[in-house]
Structure formats: C-alpha cells, structure tokens
Simulated assay, not measured.
Amino acid sequence: MSSNRTSRRAVLVSCAAVTGALLLSACGSDSGDDSESGSGEGKAAAATTRQITDAQGRKVKVPGDPRKVVTLSEPTTDAALALGVEPVGVTAGRGQKGVSTYLADKASKAQVVATVAEADMEKLAALQPDLILLDETTGAKKTVDKLQEIAPTVVTAKLNEDWKKSFTDTADALNKKADAEKWLTGFDTRVADVKKQLGSNAGTSVSVIRWQDGAPSVVGKGDGVVASTLQALGTTRPKDQQGASTGHSEPVSLEKLDTIDGDWLFFGTLGDKADGEKAYGEAQKVTNFGKLTAEKDKHVVVIEGSAWNSAGGPLSAQVVLDDLEGALAK
C-alpha cells in the first residue's frame, strides 16, 4: 500500500480508539501528528509521523518511532544497529549468505530479505515493516516505487556518499540524528587519540587487500570508511592504492604481487577473521608472497574482512579502527 494510504488507515485506527470530540478533531487534522497502532507484547503504542526529504529528493512521511524497520543495504543495516535499532529484515553481507559476520551478534533476530543485488519482495512484505531504508550501494535502489507500496521507503545516501553523512542521514530517518552526531564525536576523538599513539608507525605505508580465488584484490580506496580512517591517522597508501577506486575492489594479478606491498599489509576475505587466517595460509604458499616486506617483517595483519570490505557504516569504521590500533599503536 502507499505511504499516504498507510497514514490514513493509521489515523482511522487511532481515532476509533479515543473518545471526546476534541481528541477526535485532533486525529482528523493535517498537523502531522498522525497516530499509528503498533503491537508489542499485546500493548498498543502510538507514534507520530514526520516528513523528510531523502537522497533522491523524494518527500517521504515516516514514523516518528519506527518499530519494524527493514534495511536493504550494508550501510543502513550497520547504522541502524549502531543506534540500537535491530531491523526485522536485513540484507546479506557482500559475498555472504547471512548478515555480515561483524554484525551477526547484533542482528541475530533479523531475517535476511535481500542481497546486494536485489530484495526479495515477498519475504520483505511478509514482515509488514513500517519503514524501509536503503541507499544506492544496493540493487534494490531500482525498485523504490515497489518498495514504497509496502512501507515508507527512504533512500538515505547517493553512491559513494561520505560515510559519516550517510550515517547521520540514516539516523535522521530513524529520528535519531542527535545520537548519530554524538557517536561520531566519540569516534573522531578516539581516532585522534590513536593517532597520538602511533609512534614510529606515524606516516607508515598501509596496504589493504582481500584474498579471493587465489589472488589479491585492493580494497579501501577512495573516500570510504577504510580510506578516510587511514587518512585521519596520517598513514599513507602504496602507489597503486591511491586515488579513487574503479569499483568496490580491484583485482591484482600474481605477476604484480609486489604492488600490494607496504610497511604493513592488512589482509582479509569477505568473511570473518577465521576465514582470513585460512586464506593467509594459502597466500603464504604463493610464489613471491614471502618476498613482500610486510611478510618478511611480520607486519601482515589478518582482519575481520566483512567489516573492511563492507560498503561502510559506523560499526565497520569501529572495527577498522580497532584493527589499526591493535597493530600500529605503541
């Protein structure tokens, strides 16, 4: 159903539940204080509605206190969980069947209703969400009109949007923008603290790669979570890892293995750290991998790859900073 139809139905339900001519008059007004009936352990909960303008310039009326949120992209799932909102429906992590492993504990009750490529409309609709969030990192962006028929749908960010702005805009759709700004203040303070602890690693060269199908791919270029965090810490990147990325990742042939070298090499897969450890064992058997400076100096750091390879979000940034601090801080 459309968001307008949803709002009208909510108004009728709320108005039928109250008495008194004054309250009835208020329910029928266009003040924006429309009420919706929600259930939680048998108790009804009233919620106001708000109108926001999303990243595509669409004006969307959203619940002031959404109870059943579906997040169809990695950044919106990450952001919601960082703000204490566990979605009822989520997207699978990049290259994974379930939610990204770094988010699994926080999203244990969520049902996977989408992949990076597309959403499963039938599964999504069955959840009866009151708010759908996504951004342009997911193929579901092509079906916004269909999603809007299920529940109010907000596109929170354009492709390649600064992750901090994407976070605060997602938070705004959840009516938690102040919480997001507070979170970011704390994160920036911690980045500054870690930078002071780098000692001899200040300005060090950091390479970030994902190992897949027996070969590396460069990740974390451009302005995303990885690149911006490394830049904020004052580290540098190898020559071939500078500038904008031509895609989410850039494959590197084994004949050019030396181009992924740096003072430090952060190494992972699309999965968790255990999967990264297994891949690292495979990489060590590859010709010339042992000649890399980072390998010889024992500066290869196996990481939680699902976070480093994520399309971004505050919790992925937190994991990236944790891994960097653990390896580089003195």
Rank of each mutant, 00 (worst) to 15 (best):
G186F: 07
P216M: 06
G84L: 03
L292S: 11
D30E: 08
S7I: 15
Q318G: 00
V319H: 02
D105C: 08
G95C: 00
L184S: 01
S245H: 06
G312L: 06
K61V: 13
S3E: 13
H248F: 00
S29C: 08
L254A: 02
D263T: 11
D78F: 01
A151G: 12
N160R: 12
S39C: 08
V208F: 00
D145G: 01
G243E: 10
D323A: 13
T153L: 10
A151I: 13
R210F: 07
S200W: 00
Q111L: 13
T138A: 11
V300T: 04
T168A: 13
K278H: 10
P216Q: 10
Q56H: 15
A16F: 00
V70F: 05
K330C: 01
V320G: 02
A114M: 10
H248E: 09
V320L: 07
W183N: 03
G222K: 08
A202T: 15
L83Y: 05
T76M: 06
G42V: 09
T138L: 04
W183A: 01
I209Y: 04
R67W: 02
V319D: 00
K296D: 12
I150S: 11
A80E: 02
Q284E: 15
M121Y: 11
D322L: 01
L131I: 06
D322Y: 09
C27I: 03
L81M: 04
Q51P: 00
T189N: 15
A279N: 13
D275S: 15
A279K: 10
Q284G: 13
S3V: 13
L23C: 01
F267E: 05
G276F: 08
T77A: 06
K177F: 09
V155A: 12
D162N: 15
K273L: 12
G220K: 08
G32C: 11
K196R: 12
S217M: 05
V320M: 05
T156P: 06
L23S: 11
T204Y: 01
G89H: 01
K146I: 04
G98C: 09
G268S: 09
S31D: 12
V90F: 07
V320Q: 02
A114V: 09
M121I: 14
N160A: 09
V18T: 12
N175L: 00
L257P: 05
V18P: 00
V302A: 02
T143K: 15
A232R: 11
A80F: 06
K43R: 13
Q284D: 13
P152W: 04
D272K: 08
